[in-house]
């Protein structure tokens, strides 16, 4: 049974199964991750340092560009390249943190509900139904209004809201696996629920979990960008990609790069995540693999 998990991550087939486009996406994704990890060292300027003399200067190559500001400066003379790098760091950090939190919560509840059944299962299933009725965006609006745009609060809220997808799928899988002979024989051999969950069920859950993680990650990145765009996310002056687009809107006619640069960065991130996510999903789908 562990072979499934092993196949999923097997390095050689992982690379050879990928189309050239997916390989490009993986490389770009790793580069983006590397750039965000090294942002404080790569960025030529402090992202919040204002240079009022070099306000709204266009990217290099356009008339009136200021020295050293590759992608131009914003309305306060802050370097857009440096802000973009740091913004990417925060956006990806929130995505990873939020998706991990949702996965841990959903996995734990889904496992317990699926294994124990009975009242606990009914409660978890009911909670899933209720969570579905309250859309992600509204929950986020509510949380931001109540707690304000604190980074940690944002991660926690976005993560908690994502638990439902994980719990639903994990619960379904566990119920399906619960009556399989290998679980029954493990039970007969006296394995504890903890052992069954970690040694027998978890390896079978790896591929759906990875796929859902990618999905949840892109959903959270999107939601965070949207909230920041509306001015409801992380508080200024800290840059996130969404807030850069949102604040740049006021200068659209005269300084379009304020909007275009972060927009393109967001597009790049969502495209890469999408390509890798699709690839992982196809890989996890056994039916498709045999076709």
């Amino acid at each position: 049974m562990k072979r499934i998990a092993k196949y999923f991550f097997h390095a050689r087939t992982f690379w050879s199964d990928a189309t050239p486009l997916v390989r490009l996406a993986i490389v770009v994704g790793l580069l983006l991750l590397g750039a965000t990890a090294l942002a404080p060292w790569l960025a030529p300027f402090d992202p919040n340092q204002q240079t009022l003399l070099a306000r709204l200067s266009p990217p290099v190559g356009f008339e009136g560009a200021a020295m050293g500001h590759w992608l131009g400066t914003d309305e306060l003379g802050r370097d857009i390249f440096s802000r973009g790098l740091h913004a990417l760091r925060i956006t990806l950090g929130i995505g990873l943190g939020g998706a991990s939190l949702g996965m841990l919560l959903g996995l734990a509840l889904g496992l317990v509900a699926g294994l124990k059944g009975g009242l606990i299962d009914d409660l978890v299933a009911g909670a899933i139904d209720i969570q579905i009725a309250v859309p992600f965006t509204l929950l986020a609006l509510l949380a931001v209004a109540i707690f304000g745009g604190d980074l940690l609060v944002l991660i926690i809220v976005l993560g908690i809201a994502g638990w439902e997808t994980f719990a639903r799928v994990v619960r379904g899988e566990v119920i399906k696996l619960r009556n399989q002979p290998f679980i029954e024989s493990a039970l007969a051999a006296g394995a504890s629920p903890w052992r069954i969950a970690t040694r027998h069920l978890l390896p079978n859950l790896v591929s759906p979990l990875v796929v859902m993680f990618a999905l949840s990650f892109s959903q959270i990145v999107l939601l965070e960008s949207t909230l920041s765009f509306l001015g409801l996310g992380v508080r200024p002056p800290t840059a996130t990609l969404g807030s850069m687009v949102g604040q740049g809107r006021d200068y659209m006619p005269s300084a379009p790069w304020l909007v275009i640069v972060p927009s393109l960065l967001i597009l790049l991130v969502t495209l890469v995540v999408q390509l890798i996510g699709d690839f992982l999903r196809d890989r996890a789908d056994i039916r498709l693999r045999q076709r």
């Binding site: 960008s225 949207t226 659209m252 909007v259 927009s263 995540v273």
Partner: peptide, 13 residues
């Protein structure tokens, strides 16, 4: 893959 607020902003532009 395109977030709708990015598309909307670019269309406005």
């Amino acid at each position: 893959a395109t977030p709708n607020f990015v598309l909307a902003t670019l269309m406005l532009l």
